[in-house]
Amino acid sequence: MSKHDKKLDQAARAAWMYYVAGETQQDIADKLGVSRQVAQRLVSLAVEQGLVSVSITHPVADCMTLAGQLKARFDLQLCQVVPSAGIEASGLQQMIAVAGAEVMAQTLKLEEPQIIAVGSGRTLRATIDELPEFDRPQHSCVSLIGAIASDGSCTRYDVPLWMAEKTQGRYFILPAPLYADSTEDRDLWCNHRIYRTVTEEAEKADVMFVGIGHVSAGCPLNADGFISDEQVRRLESLHVAAEMLGHFIGQDGQRLRSELDDRLTSVELTASTQRKVIAFAGGSDKHQAIFAALRGRWITGLITDEESARFALAQPD
């Protein structure tokens, strides 16, 4: 790589930090190891070279390389990696959201009616928040997961509704709690006519947008009341690595069977899927979870950060 290209890469990284992650010029200087004046010039260079418009059009070369390596190793159809070195968690989520929104928009812009199946989670919600509004009432948005906790409350991250509002399209809610109180209770929920109608619609989805969760004390699934502290401890003892739509995945990338399986009401996920399943996840607390989802071939597309990408690529098969 030429000296000019390296400078452009550094300018692009500074632009990501400044315009997307909301970092100050002093923050950028500290994290890139340069003076504040140099950081200011890098941001200015990004603007002068046309790298900054509505979005940053010059990808950081390392991130492009990492994305290509992830695609090749884990059989991904789509992959985008955003810069993450030294960036705080909130800024990192925002960067993934901006990149993810561009990916989502490729489907939402289509004139042909699309069925879009959506999971839940903070990163997915942040990504949908970054979407512009589309006049696409012909599209349908289908929930893949019940948003009701055991106490009857609804999660704040009922993201399919937010996407439907962005497109002005129809919204199909999955009318069930994520985990029913018992196997018999699950059968009652899942045999309801509306439940079957919604899950049949989800099976026809053109694309599925999902998050990748981790499981530990205080994780969103625990904090939002879907699983108890004791259930978290039992899952950790089984070496859980990831959670997707209420399905638990072990460190080997395989489905981890637990007591909760017989009560799960969300749409079934399958490994080595031929469906278009695009995940949005990043950050150090998600490293193991992202790798497990990749290792088990649970997804066909991924929007993540460079440190998560490097972690996944460093793991042995």
Rank of each mutant, 00 (worst) to 15 (best):
M1T: 12
H4D: 15
A12Y: 07
R13L: 14
R13P: 00
R13F: 13
A14F: 05
A15W: 02
M17V: 01
G22Y: 10
G22T: 08
D27N: 15
I28P: 03
L32S: 13
L32P: 12
G33T: 10
A39W: 10
A39N: 10
Q40T: 13
L42I: 10
L42F: 06
S44E: 15
L45F: 07
A46M: 08
V47W: 10
S53G: 14
I56N: 04
T57Q: 12
A61L: 05
A61W: 02
M64H: 04
A72M: 11
Q77E: 13
Q77C: 07
V81D: 04
S84K: 04
A85E: 13
G86I: 04
Q94E: 13
M95L: 05
M95Q: 06
I96Y: 00
M104L: 13
Q106E: 15
Q106Y: 09
K109E: 15
E111P: 00
E111V: 04
E112F: 07
I116E: 01
I116N: 01
G119R: 03
L124K: 02
A126D: 02
T127R: 00
T127D: 01
T127H: 00
D129W: 03
D129V: 10
F134D: 06
F134P: 03
H139K: 10
S140I: 04
S140Q: 15
V142R: 08
L144W: 01
L144E: 01
S150G: 01
S150W: 07
D151P: 00
G152R: 09
S153G: 07
C154M: 14
T155C: 09
D158N: 14
K166V: 05
T167C: 07
G169M: 07
Y171P: 00
I173N: 08
A176G: 05
P177R: 09
W189M: 10
W189L: 14
Y195N: 03
T197I: 11
T199M: 13
A202E: 04
D206I: 09
D206A: 13
D206R: 08
V207M: 02
V210R: 03
G211E: 05
H214I: 00
S216L: 02
S216R: 12
A217D: 12
L221H: 09
F226C: 02
R233G: 10
R233Y: 03
R233Q: 14
H239A: 14
H239S: 15
A241I: 06
A242M: 05
M244H: 01
H247L: 01
G250L: 12
G253T: 15
L256T: 02
E259F: 14
E259M: 14
L260R: 07
L260A: 06
D261M: 09
L264D: 04
V267S: 03
K276Y: 04
A279Q: 03
A281P: 03
G283F: 06
G283T: 08
H287N: 14
F291H: 15
A292P: 11
L294V: 05
W298E: 10
I299N: 00
T300I: 10
R310H: 14
